[in-house]
Computed example of a mutant assay.
Amino acid sequence: MADYYYERELDMLPEDCISSILSRTSPLDAFHLSLVSSTFRSAAGADSVWERFLPSDYAQIVAKSTVPLKFSSKKDLFLQLCNSILIDHGNKSFALEKSTGLKSYMLSARELSIRYGHASDHWAWKYIPESRFAEVAELKTICRLEIQGKIRTETLSPNTKYGAYMVMKMTDGAFGLDAIPCEMSVAVGNDDDQLETTAGTAYLRKPAEVAAKQWLEYALYRNRKEKLKSRVNGGGEERQLRERGDGWMEIEVGEFFAGEENEGEVTMRFTEVNGCHVKGGLVIEGIEIRPKH
């Protein structure tokens, strides 16, 4: 009963006052409170509310979209950005988190630095329908796997913890990918003053193969596995590939905090350099940078 009278009292406030209150909450709160009454629904749809939820540089982001965005209100624009758009000539994607309005980016394979990426005997660039980008990179054969991506902290939501995730697939004919663990790291800062925030290792295996592979290695190749792993410089936490809802797999490269004290360039590295082991059949879509909660 108390809640009912509280809502009735709020309903008596001027609509612009309710809008001002809602703009100081979150997108998720605004969606929920719009169900309270017709007054709240009207107030929650005001441009002044969604202007606060949109990033400060939304106009520049919209201008970089590969497809012109048509929207009837700032709320409409917010919802379109939540569905992800392609920007920068289709080589990146951008999205807002619907509940918080925090930014996410994905760097396509074309935006990454891939060792021998332009050598046709090592990598093939092709279109596949399940990718959001025009091209992905498919590994034919190589001995040293080195992939690196970069993004500026200033383009991200301020004071936010982010995770960087390599998004990939393995072809049916993939080989040699799990012989030696890969090293992964994230560093923040300029070239002369970079701070490595996280480091880890991973064997590139499909999630369904992990348990069987681990048992076989323990039973037959335990000593060999430990010797190979000892050749990895970084050490750190061992991470696993996991299935995504879009049909791809991902592995966390690392995490970092986009704050005022560590502004600069974020460098994400995914390497396997301490061996000369032939491998192939890896398909790289890109690196996704999204908020962690």
Rank of each mutant, 00 (worst) to 15 (best):
E9P: 00
P14K: 05
P14S: 07
R24E: 13
R24N: 14
L28E: 13
A30Q: 04
F31N: 12
H32C: 14
H32M: 13
L35F: 13
S37V: 07
F40A: 02
A43Y: 02
S48G: 05
R52M: 11
Y58F: 14
Q60L: 13
A63R: 12
T66P: 06
P68W: 11
F78H: 06
I85Q: 08
D88P: 00
H89R: 09
S93F: 04
Y105R: 02
Y105I: 02
R110P: 04
L112C: 00
I114N: 00
R115Y: 13
Y116D: 11
Y116M: 10
A119M: 09
I128N: 07
A134C: 10
I142Q: 01
C143D: 12
Q148C: 12
I151F: 00
R152K: 12
E154M: 08
T155K: 09
G163P: 08
M170K: 10
D172T: 08
A174E: 07
L177F: 04
I180Y: 14
I180F: 14
V188D: 04
D193M: 05
T197L: 13
L204I: 14
R205F: 02
A212Y: 03
W215S: 09
K229C: 10
S230R: 15
S230H: 12
V232N: 15
R242G: 10
G247P: 09
E250F: 00
E252H: 09
G254V: 05
G254T: 06
E255P: 04
F256N: 01
F257P: 00
E260W: 00
E263H: 05
M268N: 01
M268T: 01
T271M: 12
V273M: 15
V273P: 08
N274H: 15
N274K: 15
E285Y: 10
P291C: 09
P291T: 06
K292I: 12
